[in-house]
Design a protein around this nucleic acid. Structure first.
Lengths: 224, 224
DNA sequence: GAATGATCTGATGTATACATCATTAGACTT
DNA sequence: AAGTCTAATGATGTATACATCAGATCATTC
């Protein structure tokens, strides 16, 4: 598949935002980017506009375009929705999961529980994603899975901030086991509930973290 | 607020798609549109690309861009998610609604129950939207409300097809009353459940309708 | 008559020049 | 010195010309 510069730029910028190379609030200067990537303003414009639509970037008219900076309130709202979507995936998965998918999920679970994996945050992060991806697949609702993935992306720039939460890995792993058991035995409500809590705990820890940070004078404002 | 041609075009095309002036599967010819609106290809391109991102339009490389045509399966998936989001709004509204908001909701309910309104599908359609908008507001989660509205938009081109369902208005109105009572008395679970069902009934009727239509040889295919 | 390949066409992508608008900086007036 | 008008700047939006690429068409060859 041949991809245009516009698409490559969009992906590159998205990557940069998600992985924190571009921080929330940072300015995206069209001319500078054009020079940097050796293209004209046109593809830059188009890439940026697409990011605006998907919510990673926003525009202050006549001021410039900036990496979206969410207020704490907005983040909490987003986590609330994320929890619902994940819960829904779990509920559907508990109802619809097929044998092969269940085995894939079990295997992902075991990898999350591997002491070596748990010791390395990056590894755990990756395997954790795998576990959740298995659930998305097992929900047999591609649209839902896509929405969940997209929202997760939008939250990623902020989740980086709280990776180091104390005991989080061990707790998370326990939660995974409960979720797995619920799905395995087809308990839809439990699967939904455990997954919701799993996400909300992250959200809560996260907002604790942010509000702590805020006290230390980072007067970051929302950009609506 | 001064809006660019690109934005106006985006809105115009969106409108045309949502209101059925452009039908799913129809081609969007850049040059033709440029001539039609008396602008160059640039703003057309940008508007169309934004619609692609938001899912109303999709591109077949080197074939052209077309109004998104969803398969029945995709539509069912989307209704499933819509139901969940609406249910969530209801649950949160039952928990968080404030006095003024409750009165607004009551008033919207009464307008939906007005025989004159119920007699006219367009009026009912409008008041129905108002009722649901009140619930969105009362959920006090702007992000959720925005997602719900956006998904509703994406489904609109297809919902037009089933406006005429028998007794739908009367049933819908009854459902509204149940939903209202649940929210009024703070029964979160009931509000959620009733709203989910309210949406799913539409989805079900809708897919009944579509599968009927399909039998008559409209071999419309999904465009992934 | 089928396969191969050259050309044509339509769709797309990109660069660049120019137009517009708002904010800012500065000069001029009072 | 304050206020106001104006020119400069920077960000953005638009038109247009050109470049590219894939698929369709057509012709040539075997």
């Amino acid at each position: 598949m041949k991809r245009s510069n516009t698409q490559k730029l969009k992906d590159a910028l998205e990557e940069d935002i998600i992985n924190g190379r571009l921080l929330p609030g940072e300015k995206l200067d069209h001319d500078a980017l054009a020079r940097q990537y050796g293209v004209s303003r046109t593809p830059i414009r188009e890439a940026v506009q697409q990011l605006v639509v998907s919510g990673l970037v926003n525009v202050k008219p006549k001021k410039g375009t900036f990496v979206a900076k969410m207020s704490l309130d907005q983040l909490i709202e987003m986590f609330e929705v994320m929890a619902e979507l994940e819960g829904m995936c779990g509920r559907l998965a508990a109802r619809r999961i097929q044998t092969g998918e269940l085995e894939a999920l079990r295997s992902a679970l075991l990898r999350c529980e591997d002491p070596e994996v748990m010791a390395d945050p990056d590894d755990y992060y990756y395997e954790n994603e795998e576990f959740h991806n298995c659930i998305y697949t097992a929900s047999h609702n591609e649209f839902l899975a896509a929405e969940a993935r997209q929202l997760k992306q939008r939250l990623k720039p902020y989740r980086r901030l709280q990776l180091q939460a104390r005991n989080r890995v061990a707790n998370s792993s326990e939660e995974h086991r409960k979720i797995f058991k619920a799905i395995e035995s087809g308990r839809e409500r439990d699967a939904e509930q455990y997954l919701k809590e799993h996400v909300l705990i992250q959200g809560t820890r996260f907002s604790d973290f942010v509000s702590q940070v805020k006290k230390f004078g980072n007067s970051s404002q929302a950009t609506s």
